[in-house]
Design a protein around this nucleic acid. Sequence first.
DNA 1: CCACGGTATGCTGTAGGCAGTCGACGAAAA
DNA 2: TTTTCGTCGACTGCCTACAGCATACCGTGG
Lengths: 244, 244
Amino acid sequence: MMLLSDQAGAKIPRPATLRESVIEAIQELIVSSQLKPGQHLVESELAQLLGVSRQPVREALQQLSGEGWVDLHPGQGAFVHVPTVEEADQLLAVRALLETESARLAAQHASEEGVRRLRELCSRGIQAVESDDTDAAVAINSDLHALVTALSGNKVLAELAAQVARRVRWYHTPVARQRGMTSWREHAALIDAIEAGDERRAAEIMREHTESTRASYREQRAGEPIEPAPKRVRRRRTRTSSAN
Amino acid sequence: MMLLSDQAGAKIPRPATLRESVIEAIQELIVSSQLKPGQHLVESELAQLLGVSRQPVREALQQLSGEGWVDLHPGQGAFVHVPTVEEADQLLAVRALLETESARLAAQHASEEGVRRLRELCSRGIQAVESDDTDAAVAINSDLHALVTALSGNKVLAELAAQVARRVRWYHTPVARQRGMTSWREHAALIDAIEAGDERRAAEIMREHTESTRASYREQRAGEPIEPAPKRVRRRRTRTSSAN
DNA sequence: CCACGGTATGCTGTAGGCAGTCGACGAAAA
DNA sequence: TTTTCGTCGACTGCCTACAGCATACCGTGG
């Protein structure tokens, strides 16, 4: 009987509700800048674009609003959230805080199995950097941080950290690519500390690690004040609606 | 012209969208235990109960799921989240973390005006305790903590803290009432530290303050293992639907 | 008596449609 | 020319309706 479903974590790629698909699609459109900050998101347009009805789009927009991707103005609709430099810094500060605590707890609770998986990810990350595969490096970096939060044993903390991390990635994806190999040396040191159960050191390393990311963001923000003035405005009504 | 709308914060009591009203209504039903943990929330029933259509209810449930009040199981519907002792502890830990950092930042940035408002709340809280008005005391306590997070100057942090605080309140409303006057002495000390700009002391006081709440929760949890075994199950189908 | 498959039912997920509302545009008045 | 009011258009918010699915019931066979 129980032959099936024993394979833990081997969940069938659920047909996933349309809502979830739409959420991911819109997130993708936002991070890829196809939807620009401040832009008015018209439900019917998105619906048509994605080939679904308005309802899943509505629900997706609301969920995205809950995670800070879009701003919902009652009676007016949804607008892509305009990332402020200030807000990005605050986000990075919160991330630093959450991940530092995660590292501390991970040092307390991490199992050998967990440490093994950390090392696995770390070596794969270094490999990716050496072969200049920055995309992979960034992805593995995220996985590693996510694993640290998971190993903290505090699910609430892990979930919050994950949410913040997602937003951070949108705000300054390019920055993450800059620190290169240095970052992975810090990762290795972090794992050592976790394995040794040295919570103080683990926390300190993670703190410096995340704060240096924050500093690196602050440095580069001089060059690009993000966007000039993306005023939130309902899209002008198409005068001559001939050309669609 | 600009005569109106100068009065800051005097926003017209919006007719509020149905969705928001429904969200608050369901939250109220949950905290008041009219909807029990693990219970299957049928959209059409809630809709009828609240006198609205299914759509606002759906949207409300999804938003509530995002904030951890209900769990959404695709294809099965929404279930009231079952609060675990373990999870409550984790939530309190996260709250302690967020508020400690808030206190530290507040000590750095708080204005005189802010400190004044803190003292105002503190004295009102003491007054409430002295007149045995626990409800008011709890409310003022929340306001005070919220104000501290606001004074941190980090909006992201404040928002996260607020979200966590809301959930905490559901998990152990009764506990908060126990610590009485002690809690308010700690508040006063905290405000002193913030006014003095002593971030280290402010953080330490807040840490002890929130951690003692956590400890107080842990102590009392021996008596009531919350609920026996509220299995998540779809409600049985009504055999004879005669009696509607 | 237990196990298994068929059937019915209630629910969710999605679509389409209607009314209310908000903003923009343009004309009239100062 | 500048300000104010009326009108129009489009979009959101909500409701109703339908299809698909997962579960519970129940008869039949071992």
